[in-house]
Design a protein around this nucleic acid. Structure first.
Length: 647
RNA sequence: GCCCCGGUAGCUCAGCUCGGUUAGAGCGCCGCCUUGGUAAGGCGGAGGUCGCGGGUUCGAAUCCCGCCCGGGGCUCCA
């Protein structure tokens, strides 16, 4: 008896599949890239069998389709390299989030930019040859023999580590690679490709292993998509905070003079930072946090008590005075604990929330430094919450609410949430009892559920001392950034003996929550800068309004207008009227000043101001007071808006 | 930390392959002229230990070595 097998095309049409024929033969030409049968991905050349469920054909719009596309592209890359550099030994070549790479051992050599161009040309040739990509299964032993005969030592190594008895290889023309698949049916399916750059990486990511040359590439079904991607890359490059920041005179990192990973905040950057920090402080006070300060240095012993020293010593700046070892603080937790422990605490005082803009220094390895995003000195919006187990879930909920409020205030709308839990198979690797962990993890999940968030559970990703929630946000050009982290800690309360007296008069150990929502001010600032490409919203702009006299004879009136703006609390400055009007407007545009008030003969006479909004052009003239009323809300930080104006 | 690539004026870059006048350009800066109505007015000028140190050479921005700093990766990210 034969059941019907259905074949669903990417456009939603459903065909009846013919048993014994390949999928490829039954669908319109190049209408799909790969297929999913009963949850398993198969090549389009797969022969339809009886008794399988619906076959779903996938195209480039699906993650699996893209992955297959890029995976085959990586094989084309490897084939091109083998043609041009027969002595190259193949490493691995996966699809990645965007595009693909392939690793090669060139015996100590590396690829020049000209090599990369030649490789790209050769890849195009392979595409043009439209070679069939053929899957072949063989015994592992047979495969080892095959790759040994080709001198592919890394493939042999991979094979020897595998458990499977039967492995698959894929052939296209003269090229053969060990690969699980699936792949596109022909190399000609790849329409537009680009070799992006080369770099080096260690075999299996281990620096004791040989260095491989990693070549990155990208490919798309159409030239337009490739062009759009390259444009977007260019856009991302232009937004790079390391370029835009100094360009807008916000900050600099003169590492030759002060050392790597350290930031100098220039006046305009400092203005923005101050606005952000003031906002944070007000909001935290409103949300029931207390503001504290702690020193930048302390005896190294403090971190011995916290247990950080063993693990963290290499990251700490340590020095000696009067025979005692001191360290610059790499984190604020112990100080906040000391605030808590300065007296005996009752359950009535909990939860206690201590907040500090805590500047810390960590000796990050030089290779990981990256502008503001990974610096050696940075300021955390750090808080430690001491709570009873009963209040834990509600407290987590509140932290998440605050986090969402902050993110939305800064213009981020899209989030991704992850919970890192322990690995229940290895409880011995974690601090705390199974009850502790289960209660804590369900508190985290329950809080997220109540908030209506979707989240991903990363089992085994928790730190030994407690589970955590990480929040990533998505920026204006679709990139994801890890920002907020909310971590439970069963460890420090025990080490420092952090307790409270409960309703029955008995002493209990608190549960501690570490949380940094923006993460670090520096990092967040860098992300904001890239998110807005330097065009900060009005409430964050370092100069909100520039008064721009048409000629020097308008300077007096311009000064009056400036004074009115400053008195109203607006961050405003004055253009000095030197040079042509067009030139000065251009200057202000490049400086990304959001609003220009142009003052000429007409304005002096009428007492009005001509308003120009960046990106929108001339908005026409209006009365100065009318202008202030119209824009004041936008000038203010989100928490100060609505009603009581300050002028 | 490791691998590869790089460092020339405040910025972006040319010159380096093959050593040889006084190291160039654009932007910015300064001065003068221009008093201009919504993204570049004109003319002139100043500005450089060619990342730092050493070596080779009659002679080094250029070739060699070491170091510092940056970039792309790997790794790390309590």
């Amino acid at each position: 008896m034969s059941t019907m097998v259905k074949l669903r095309l990417p456009d939603g049409r459903v065909l009846e599949a013919k048993i014994g024929e390949s999928i490829l033969e039954q669908i319109p030409p190049e209408s799909g890239l790969v297929a999913k049968v009963d949850g398993k991905l198969v090549d389009l050349t797969w022969i339809v069998r009886e008794g399988v469920g619906t076959i779903e054909v996938l195209d480039f719009n699906s993650p699996e389709g893209r992955e297959t596309y890029w995976h085959t592209s990586s094989h084309i890359l490897a084939q091109a390299v083998k043609r041009l550099f027969p002595e190259a030994k193949l490493g691995i070549g996966p699809a990645i989030e965007e595009g693909f790479f392939y690793d090669f051992d060139l015996g100590g050599k590396s690829f020049s930019p000209e090599d990369l161009e030649r490789i790209e040309e050769e890849m195009r040739r392979i595409v043009k040859e439209n070679l069939p990509v053929v899957r072949e299964e063989m015994d592992r032993e047979e495969a080892i023999k095959l790759f040994k005969s080709m001198g592919e030592v890394y493939k042999v190594e991979l094979l020897e580590e595998m458990d499977e008895d039967v492995v698959s290889v894929y052939r296209q023309g003269e090229f053969v690679d060990l690969c699980r698949g699936p792949h596109l049916p022909y190399t000609g399916y790849v329409k537009a490709l680009k070799v992006l750059h080369a770099s080096s990486a260690y075999w299996k990511g281990d620096e004791r292993n040989p260095v491989m040359q990693r070549v990155y590439g990208i490919s798309f079904p159409t030239e337009e998509e490739l062009k759009r991607y390259l444009k977007m890359r260019e856009e991302a490059r232009k937004r790079d905070h390391r370029i835009v920041g100094p360009q807008l005179d916000l900050f600099s990192m003169p590492s030759e003079v002060i050392g790597p990973g350290l930031v100098i905040w220039h006046p305009k950057g400092a203005r923005i930072r101050r606005v952000i920090e003031d906002f944070l402080v007000r909001v935290h006070l409103k949300w029931g946090y207390e503001l504290v300060y702690s020193p930048h240095i302390a005896y190294t012993n403090l971190w011995r008590t916290s247990g950080h020293l063993n693990y963290y010593r290499d990251f700490m700046y340590v020095f000696e005075k009067e025979g005692i070892e001191h360290a610059v603080k790499p984190m604020n937790c112990p100080f906040h604990i000391l605030v808590y422990k300065s007296k005996r605490r009752s359950y009535r005082e909990l939860p206690m929330r201590l907040f500090e803009l805590g500047t810390v220094y960590r000796y990050e390895r030089s290779g990981v430094l990256h502008g503001l995003l990974r610096a050696r000195g940075f300021t955390q919006d750090d808080a430690h919450i001491f709570t009873t187990p009963e209040k834990l879930e509600e407290e987590i909920f509140r932290v998440i609410e605050l986090d969402e409020y902050l993110m939305r205030s800064f213009g981020f709308e899209e989030f991704k949430v992850e919970i890192s839990t322990w690995d229940p198979r290895h409880p011995e690797e974690y601090m705390g009892s199974e009850e502790d962990w289960n209660r804590a993890q369900s508190a985290l999940e329950e809080a997220l559920r109540k908030k209506g968030y979707e989240y991903e559970v990363m089992e085994g990703e928790a730190a030994f001392y407690g589970p955590k929630i990480d929040v990533k946000l998505v920026d204006s050009i679709g990139r994801e950034w890890q920002l907020s982290t909310i971590q439970l800690d069963f460890n420090l309360p025990k080490r420092f003996n952090v307790t409270y007296v409960d309703a029955n008069g008995s002493e209990k150990t608190v549960i501690m929550i570490h949380r940094a929502l923006l993460g670090s001010i520096e990092r967040f600032f860098g992300i904001l800068l890239e998110h807005y490409a330097g065009n900060f919203p009005l409430w964050l702009a370092p100069v909100q309004v520039r008064v721009l006299p048409v000629a020097e004879r308008h300077l007096d009136r311009a000064r009056e207008v400036l004074e009115r703006l400053l008195n109203a609390g607006v961050r405003a400055d004055l253009d000095d009227a030197r040079g042509t009007l067009g030139y000065r407007i251009r200057e202000s545009e490049l400086e990304k000043v959001p609003i220009l008030l142009v003052i000429g003969d007409r304005e002096v006479e009428s007492g009005k101001v001509a308003v120009r909004r960046k990106g929108k052009g001339n908005l026409g003239s209006m009365d100065l007071e009318e202008f202030l009323r119209g824009f004041m809300e936008e000038f203010l930080p989100p928490d100060l808006r609505g009603g009581s104006s300050t002028f």
